[in-house]
């Protein structure tokens, strides 16, 4: 089974994420980045499937130079090869354009049996790219898996929704997104780190994908960020130490704020 895992390189949520003043795009250079933590679950699930049968795991990222780190991390975890689509023209792309580039790259990698993604990136957090990829590639969309089984060409997941827990079925080839409930991602071992150095990584430009530069990037985006503003940090209010009356004081505060 051939699996493509889409992994995104994102600014670290622990650092001060911000925007570029010049064009209102996400600052992906001045802030430390990493493989989006939620995509580690997709890599782990791919590795488990590949280990249980045969097949190859290719990780795919679309992003600037630094995004090579996201591919590297996935290779260290155990993926077989990497593809990095890197082209200046992609800077500032919206979700629609990003999904176009990813879809064309997946086609070029060559009709995989399974495309795996995370449930959301940790920067844009839109949770839309998986559905867009299914739409563009004409694949069954089997998303938000908290459990995944593949038997023959049958794909089955469990999805924990608000109103119900659902079983969703489709057939390969399919697109599956996974949640952070599905597994416990492995840490790269020393052996994995050494082995990753020898694994093939291809870097593709838009030209390699046959995507016209006018279809992507900031100018082609179908959405426009007009302005961004840092939210003033919350002012710390009153802190009391419980001396036997903490609960009473809490209730008094709520009453004063008209919550009771």
């Amino acid at each position: 089974m051939n699996i493509v895992v889409c992994v995104k390189y994102v600014p670290d949520a622990q650092s001060d994420r911000t925007f570029n003043e010049s064009d209102n795009t996400t600052d992906r250079v001045g802030v430390d980045g990493l493989l989006s933590e939620l995509d580690e679950y997709a890599v782990e699930e791919a590795l488990k499937l590949a280990e249980a049968g045969e097949g190859e795991v290719t990780v795919l990222t679309v992003g600037p130079d630094q995004a090579a780190d996201a591919v590297k991390k996935a290779l260290q975890m155990g993926a077989d090869k990497g593809v990095h689509v890197n082209d200046k023209a992609i800077h500032g792309s919206d979700a629609v354009a990003t999904s176009l580039v990813l879809a064309e790259a997946i086609k070029k990698i060559g009709a995989p049996d399974l495309v795996l993604t995370g449930m959301a990136s940790t920067d844009g957090t839109m949770s839309v790219v998986p559905a867009m990829l299914a739409e563009r590639l004409g694949l069954p969309q089997v998303t938000f898996a908290s459990e995944l089984t593949v038997e023959g060409t049958a794909v089955k997941i469990r999805r924990d929704g608000d109103a119900a827990s659902e079983t969703i079925e489709g057939t390969l080839p399919a697109l599956v997104s996974v949640t952070d409930q599905i597994n416990e991602p492995r840490y790269p071992s020393f052996k994995g780190i050494m082995a990753a150095k020898k694994k093939p990584v291809e870097t593709w430009s838009l030209g390699d994908l046959g995507v016209d530069a006018s279809q992507v990037g900031l100018d082609a985006a179908w959405t426009k960020v007009e302005s961004f503003q840092q939210r003033p940090p919350r002012q710390q209010g009153q802190i009391v130490t419980d001396e036997g009356d903490g609960g009473t004081k809490l209730a008094e505060f709520l009453a004063a704020q008209k919550f009771i």
């Binding site: 209010g237 802190i239 009391v240 419980d242 903490g246 609960g247 009473t248 809490l250 209730a251």
Partner: peptide, 17 residues
């Protein structure tokens, strides 16, 4: 982040509240 905070054990503070 809080507008109001109680430093204390939730098992005594919450029931009283």
């Amino acid at each position: 982040l809080v507008d109001f905070g109680v430093v204390g054990d939730l098992f005594t503070v919450l029931p009283q509240a």
